[in-house]
Design a protein around this nucleic acid. Structure first.
Lengths: 223, 223
DNA sequence: GTATATCTTAAGTAATTCTTAAGTTAATTC
DNA sequence: GAATTAACTTAAGAATTACTTAAGATATAC
């Protein structure tokens, strides 16, 4: 288990780092926001422990940048302030947990374990049902009742991405990344063509896909 | 010897737990599937006693997740149903033994000892039958009726991996790992060649292998 | 060390899927 | 309500993916 620790105070950083290493974790640490960000982007960490107050770039900006680069690594925010606004802001920005200083080492340890557990779990929730449509992420299929809607890989992936991001506008850019990964891209027109085809196939099976177009922004599913 | 007990009914859980502790085992227990899974993933147990009916996540899903995370801890499944389908399903999913409720404590004890004694992990059932094809995992053979289909080691392993992962898409990566282990790899093309050859041999013996290609994702067996 | 079996690679083929582009429809703005 | 823009649809060509086969490479058995 690899952990990245980004913390301003060198004494706190050292004590946390040594404590976690004694518990068997591999720990990289830095006291600088900018360096932390590049480490987070390039390294393969299971969890990032991130202080909000940092030199060069603050923690929330690091987190925001991380999320907009679609890095899904779990992040545990540390903050000196116990103001609820801070907590809310942190969690909204995409943090997975939040801890207010001062905290006991045991508490940090417990939260980390909880985050690590979530990490292994998350992948395996595999069925989404919506408006009678059942998306099986293990079988990579979509069915309506007992009728299978036969989708091509890209059509399926588009539907999957939307089904797992309900009540959120999914931009064509995000869809492109879901289809082709970070280092390649799929044109907007191509996505439109796929979605059109998927909608047509669903209609033929007797359902409308519950995907609505948010003109100018992207697509969204709402119950 | 450390045992994890995941059982819904609190009275049964307590009685088993106390009984095993009296026999000198270390026992952790929980009544929740999700918690059981995370304990199984993080803890270091010798055997997991796992009920099928559980809140939050059912036992078979816990087991499946465990196996797909390459946790090889031995698992003894408990089930209220005595339906043979359940047993087969459980053992196919990767259980090492199976016990139907109600059972005597002595029987549980005996099975646990048997599981603990087993030097190498070996499944309790050694052959899978599917569409007239019989896969014998002890003899490493595949036969159709009384006609043996002579497969090379890699061909056999591919068929075995698919037969023991029914209703799940098996990716080429997973097959590669099954053939060559974690620290080596087999090319996708090579897997294709093996599978092609296996399919041809089966056809010559008068059967089609019930392996369907999920284009873009992998291979799968469905009943 | 040789013989045999098995594995990998590569090239050809077939089938499916993806992308593009042009035309159409729908929504928004002025 | 006309103009403008964005999204949808369709079909054809391009690209990808999987299958098959055979030959050379590698491993295994004797």
């Amino acid at each position: 288990m690899k952990i990245l620790l980004v913390e301003d105070s060198s004494s706190l950083r050292r004590s946390i780092s040594i404590g976690l290493q004694n518990l068997g974790f591999t720990v990289d640490d830095t006291g600088d926001g900018s360096e932390g960000l590049s480490m987070a982007l390039t390294g393969d960490y299971d969890v990032i422990v991130l202080d909000i107050m940092l030199p060069s770039i603050d923690g929330l900006t690091v987190l925001k940048t991380l999320r907009s680069s679609h890095k899904d690594t779990r992040v545990l925010l540390l903050s000196a302030k116990s103001q609820p606004e801070d907590k809310v802001k942190g969690l909204l920005t995409g943090a997975d947990d939040y801890l207010t200083k001062p905290f006991s080492f045991d508490e940090l340890h417990a939260r980390l374990l909880s985050l690590l557990r979530r990490g292994t779990l998350r992948k395996d929730i595999d069925n989404v049902e919506l408006a009678g449509l059942i998306l099986d992420m293990q079988l990579k299929t979509l069915r309506f009742g007992n009728k299978f809607i036969d989708l091509t890989p890209n059509e399926y992936k588009i539907v999957e991405c939307l089904f797992t991001n309900q009540n959120i506008i999914v931009t064509p850019e995000k869809l492109s990344e879901h289809l082709a990964g970070q280092y390649d891209a799929v044109s907007k027109n191509s996505i439109e063509a796929h979605l059109s085809s998927a909608r047509k196939k669903a209609k033929l099976a007797g359902v409308e896909l519950p995907i609505q177009t948010k003109r100018g922004f992207g697509y969204m599913i709402t119950q």
